[in-house]
């Protein structure tokens, strides 16, 4: 095999990425720090000084802070249960993974059809005689219900991706470690906490980074359920780009999302770092 063959084979993918990813990315980055053809931070000033920026930033962080921990606990629990199954393991995995096959907008619409005034929840409650009149849940007067609905939809939609990664990670831990811990007196909880979790760090890293980045990019579910009631960083990017027709500010928003994603990726990498000598 000629030495250059691997590089030759990688060339199409590399060219593709350069043209369709690196090039537009650089353009957006440059756009965010130029205004009227000059280098400036005006776009960032304009973005952050707008009253919606703080709101969007706060909402995005709040959503991530609510959704990701719930998903972490749920996916760990689900993965542990799936791991223990003798029969029907793949069937359960597939069922758990169904929401993964649905786009985020569709997921938002599914939950909208539950929560809207003429939705399933109201019909059910009226049908059961628990309420007289359909209730307007997703209104500007009840932002907490909107938040709750978004969290619910996000948890429903994207927990499975973490679970799949964690199931794979659990499968990599040899059974003898758990048995050794059991023989040496660890309770079920201690086995999980002192043996499984530390050995699961590489998978947790992957699952968390993936999930946290996606949480910062939350968009369609929020639009479907909250409309303009709940601005997030991504919806503001969209807003500046298409409604306010200011590409520079939209680019600045994109850079903020990138910065936050990179920052949290680094934090997760650091927090769940496994020193080389402590790897299996």
């Amino acid at each position: 095999m000629p030495r250059y063959l691997p590089y030759l084979l990688l060339l199409p993918a590399t060219v593709f990425l350069i043209i369709f990813f690196l090039y537009p990315f650089t353009q957006v980055a440059i756009e965010s720090v130029t205004s009227n053809g000059e280098w400036s931070l005006a776009n960032f000033q304009k973005a952050t000084s707008h009253w919606k920026f703080g709101e969007a930033f706060k909402n995005t962080m709040l959503l991530a802070a609510l959704v990701v921990p719930i998903q972490l606990v749920m996916s760990l629990t689900m993965a542990t249960v799936v791991q223990k199954l003798q029969k029907g393991r793949s069937a359960i995995l597939y069922i758990f993974a169904i929401p993964l096959g649905i786009s985020d907008l569709a997921a938002g619409l599914i939950w909208l059809s539950i929560f809207e005034q003429s939705g399933f929840l109201n019909s059910m409650l009226v049908g059961l005689g628990l309420i007289e009149q359909p209730i307007l849940y997703l209104s500007y007067q009840s932002p907490w219900i909107i938040l709750f609905a978004i969290v619910l939809a996000e948890v429903w939609r994207a927990t499975a991706i973490m679970m799949v990664i964690i199931v794979a990670g659990l499968g990599l831990i040899p059974r003898e470690y758990g048995e050794a811990a059991e023989v040496f007196g660890a309770t079920r909880w201690q086995r999980f906490y002192k043996v499984t979790l530390p050995m699961l760090r590489p998978s947790l890293q992957t699952a968390l980074i993936l999930r946290v980045i996606l949480a910062f990019e939350v968009f369609a579910v929020v639009i479907a359920l909250g409309g303009t009631q709940m601005p997030v960083l991504m919806s503001e990017t969209f807003n500046w780009q298409f409604n306010l027709q200011d590409r520079g500010v939209a680019a600045a928003y994109a850079m903020v999302i990138l910065a936050v994603s990179v920052l949290f990726t680094l934090i997760i990498l650091r927090a769940l770092h496994v020193p080389k000598e402590a790897r299996t």
Partner: peptide
């Protein structure tokens, strides 16, 4: 359960915790 039996065990693949 194992821990109440007064036993200790050496495993074939050692099961020395890597972390």
């Amino acid at each position: 359960p194992p821990k109440e039996r007064g036993i200790a065990m050496v495993f074939q693949n050692y099961a020395v915790f890597p972390h």
